[in-house]
């Protein structure tokens, strides 16, 4: 084993451990701020895995998009609404946790079993390396042009929708008749569905 492969193996093990432990931490920790920070760590470690696969552009994009944008926004949201609220105790919490842990463990066992028994066609195509950036661009403007363009529609629409939902100035009156608008319009007197459930 050469020095290069040893280094690669060590890096892989460390990164994988960070990913797995970090992801468990995201799910299991009760402090949501810790979860959010750990999520950033997981994203970064995944970027490291991409680097090991010789996909540096993807790795950098992962850091820029997931760590730099998504994770920061998650943290923002958490810190802006950082209300310490004591939630109502949920009945049979231990049983519920045990059940969901069992389901997850079962799913994991199934996946591991299936993945191990599958004859993967290894090794895959060789890594493109430094040329990858140009090749990604080429694919984005040829066979993945349609999804690429639709993604822009998706983002535009999501942005508009977010603004519509977040802004305050909903029309108070009907533009045509000038009557007071009726936001509930149907079944005004009902309580939210969740409350119905709780009864």
């Amino acid at each position: 084993m050469t020095i290069a492969t040893t280094t690669e193996l060590i890096c892989f093990l460390v990164l994988s451990a960070v990913v797995v432990i970090g992801a468990l931490g995201v799910v299991l920790l009760s402090n949501i701020v810790y979860s959010a920070f750990l999520l950033g760590g997981v994203f970064t470690a995944v970027a490291g895995l991409y680097l090991l696969l010789n996909a540096s552009f993807v790795a950098m994009a992962q850091i820029l998009v997931y760590v730099g944008a998504i994770n920061v926004l998650i943290l923002f949201a958490i810190m802006l609404v950082n209300k310490r609220e004591d939630l109502k105790a949920i009945a049979n919490l231990t049983t519920r946790r045990a059940v969901s842990a069992g389901v997850c463990a079962g799913l994991l066992a199934l996946l591991v079993r299936v993945v191990v028994t599958t004859p993967w066609s290894l090794p895959g195509p060789p890594a493109v390396g430094e040329e990858a950036t140009a090749r990604i661009g080429e694919h984005l403007f040829t066979d993945y042009l349609l999804p690429f363009e639709v993604a822009s529609v998706l983002l535009l629409m999501a942005m508009i929708g977010a603004i519509v939902l977040a802004r305050r100035d909903v029309l108070a009156t009907d533009v045509v008749t000038g009557e007071v608008a009726d936001q509930g319009l149907i079944e005004k007197a009902r309580t939210p569905l969740l409350m119905n459930r709780a009864e």
Binding site: L146, V164, D174
Partner: peptide, 25 residues
């Protein structure tokens, strides 16, 4: 319905058209 419930019509139509676009594709 949109008029009476006081919701902006333009964005409503735009979002519905975007949904149509996605569904058609």
């Amino acid at each position: 319905y949109a008029e009476k419930s006081g919701t902006p019509v333009g964005e409503y139509a735009a979002i519905l058209l975007a949904a149509t676009l996605g569904a058609m594709l």
